[in-house]
């Protein structure tokens, strides 16, 4: 049953992707990309990747769509016809496709438990998570502790994107001419529905933040959800009102603060005699130390992701329209 549903989803994704490439209307392409991300998220869920599904839904279908739409409102909605070098592109793509298809012929089949990926490192994680870290969600254990250094890097990738957007768009050249953004304040139904939904989105965001050890979720998903809730508020009430609630200095503090918190935990564990990001030394009981470390770094992740996503959104939204 699952297999059939999976094939159905994959086929839908294929159709959506082809439509995305073919359409000349960028607005349509963006909407289709949102749908594509939701289908992909559903597919991840079928493949037992609950955390990834949640992230793909929040980031791919939510945040990415909002960013693309705000960028479209500043640029153009229609793609002009004409491609150059189409044959060369087709040739390159064809060669790459054939190479990859060739590779899949020797690949282990889907779900094969004897595949090399399931033999070596992965069973060790499953075996050792209960004793070494003792959180139910193995993905969280690997993400936050066993491969915590990757996640530190990931937070800094987000941080980099944040300061990049602020560097490029952060200064407002036409502040006087800028008329306050009204949002959908005069549309009763949107406003009513929006205001009812927002508290639940925020609540769910906080739940995902602090429940990430037990179920799917963690700092990234929570940050994306909280940011989505506030962006929804900004869309309804206007960006200026939203900026009154979360002023720019606070956003800057969040962008830098979360990253500093994560790195700070690493440095603290160094100062307390462990290696970088070795949470075991943070408390007299190693497992309790791991819990504390994971809680703190997930908080850091959540703060930076929320701050960066909101900064990016506000940078796009307060740009003068052409």
């Amino acid at each position: 049953m699952n297999a059939i549903f999976g094939i159905f989803l994959l086929t839908l994704m294929l159709i959506t992707a082809i439509a995305v490439v073919r359409t000349r209307n960028l607005f349509v392409a963006t909407t289709l990309m949102g749908i594509f991300s939701l289908l992909l998220a559903a597919n991840f869920f079928l493949l037992d990747a609950a955390d990834v599904a949640l992230t793909e839904a929040a980031v791919g279908a939510g945040i990415s769509t909002v960013l693309l739409l705000s960028a479209l409102s500043l640029t153009a909605e229609q793609e002009k016809p004409g491609h150059r070098g189409r044959l060369l592109a087709l040739a390159v793509v064809l060669v790459t496709t054939l190479a990859l298809l060739h590779a899949t012929l020797d690949s282990p089949r889907l779900g094969d438990i004897d595949a090399p990926v399931h033999q070596h490192v992965a069973p060790w994680y499953i075996e050792n998570t209960p004793t070494a870290i003792d959180v139910p969600n193995i993905v969280t254990a690997v993400l936050a502790s066993f491969r915590g250094y990757d996640t530190l890097g990931e937070v800094f990738v987000v941080f980099t994107a944040g300061i990049g957007v602020l560097f490029l768009l952060g200064h407002y050249p036409h502040k006087q001419a800028h008329k306050p953004h009204e949002g959908l304040r005069h549309y009763l139904i949107q406003r009513l529905v929006g205001r009812t939904v927002i508290p639940f989105i925020l609540l769910f965001g906080f739940y995902v933040q602090f429940h990430g050890d037990f179920g799917p979720g963690g700092g990234f998903q929570a940050g994306a959800l909280v940011a989505a809730g506030i962006i929804l508020y900004a869309l309804i009430e206007g960006t200026d009102r939203a900026l009154n609630i979360i002023p720019k200095w606070l956003l800057n503090g969040m962008v830098a603060g979360g990253a500093l918190l994560y790195g700070g935990v690493g440095i603290a564990s160094m100062l307390m005699g462990g290696n970088f990001l070795d949470y075991s030394v943070l408390s007299s009981d190693p497992v309790a130390g791991q819990h504390l470390g994971i809680l703190l770094i997930e908080l850091g992740v959540g703060i930076t992701v929320t701050g960066v996503l909101l900064s990016i959104f506000f940078a796009f939204a307060s740009r003068k329209h052409f």
Binding site: H120, S145, R147, G148, Y149, G274, N275, F276, S280
Partner: peptide
């Protein structure tokens, strides 16, 4: 060689 988080490779980084 330095083990991040004191997890031995290949399990840790």
């Amino acid at each position: 060689v330095y083990e991040m988080g004191l997890w031995a490779p290949p399990y840790g980084i």
